[in-house]
């Protein structure tokens, strides 16, 4: 019993320490982070401008979504997108091709913990640097956003849920690199599917009905559309809680999948490089 508690505590210590060192090291690269963030902003701004243009041509709204609501959607989008940046399959590819995994395997910890803690430590820095960006977008695009306290609370948990879903999804994809290290084409296919079926491109109600049905069977919308909509939209308390439950469900499924494949994958690993 004592041993179990000790293990949990040392794991907790690991996350706190790893996260804290990551925060410190990321703060050194503020300018680089800003360049990267401005590059990232182009995508939602393009979507926002296109849909605002269409809404204005049609008298102020598309499918009931007004220009102010579009602005709110895509501004919150930028925060959710920042939360969604995780260790990618390309990272796994690099890890295996360069033999970096060998060192990670020597540690008495699953490499996933390191990815999770490291990127989680990056998030507070990103959110802090994001605030002025959000302020500028707010002034430029005039969003309509009035969340309730409950919505704000759910949003806080939902962005971390989104972070976990996407980490686990990307890890699952990353496992493929144990069998072949030329997987960029497969990844791009998945990223494209995610773009269309997650709410990253447009709010889900703008998609055709059949696409929304397909999206219902996939984890994507729970890491984009749901967190954004929890703050921007008018979801009922039941819908909000159901959303969090769906996030938990997908985190469990994808974590299980990663760990299951990992058992076979790691046996295939033979260190390349040094």
């Amino acid at each position: 019993m004592n041993g179990k508690a000790g293990a949990v505590r040392s794991m907790f210590d690991f996350y706190v320490t790893r996260g804290r060192t990551q925060i410190q090291s990321e703060f050194q690269y503020r300018a680089a982070t800003y360049f990267w963030m401005i590059g990232m902003l182009a995508e939602p701004i393009v979507y926002l401008v296109v849909w605002t243009t269409i809404a204005e041509q049609q008298g102020g709204s598309v499918q009931g979504i007004t220009t102010g609501e579009f602005a709110a959607y895509y501004i919150v989008w930028t925060l959710v997108r920042n939360m969604n940046i995780v260790f990618t399959p390309y990272g796994w590819e690099w890890r295996i091709r360069e033999g970096q995994l060998s060192a990670a395997l020597l540690r008495p910890l699953h490499p996933l913990h390191d990815d999770l803690a490291g990127f989680a430590g990056w998030k507070p820095v990103v959110i802090l640097l994001w605030l002025p960006v959000a302020a500028v977008l707010w002034i430029a695009f005039d969003p309509v956003l009035a969340p309730t306290l409950l919505e704000a609370c759910v949003f806080f948990f939902a962005i971390w849920g989104a972070y976990l879903i996407r980490t686990m999804f990307m890890s699952t994809l990353g496992m493929i690199t144990f069998w072949t290290t030329r997987v960029s084409a497969i990844f791009e296919l998945f990223i494209a599917a995610e773009l269309l079926l997650s709410g990253r491109l447009v709010p889900m109600p703008l998609m055709p009905d059949w696409a929304q049905d397909v999206a219902g069977f996939l984890p994507f919308q729970w890491s984009f559309y749901f967190p954004i909509e929890s703050l921007v939209g008018d979801l009922s308390t039941g819908e909000l809680l159901r959303g969090l439950a769906m996030q938990a469900f997908w985190i469990a499924v994808l974590t299980g999948l990663t760990l299951f494949v990992w058992r076979f994958a790691v046996r295939r690993y033979s260190a390349v490089g040094n």
């Binding site: 300018a31 680089a32 360049f35 990267w36 401005i38 590059g39 990232m40 182009a42």
Partner: peptide, 14 residues
């Protein structure tokens, strides 16, 4: 450190 400028361009090119 100019690599981030490449990311910036990739984004803006969209």
């Amino acid at each position: 450190n100019t690599w981030s400028i490449i990311e910036l361009f990739d984004g803006v090119y969209q």
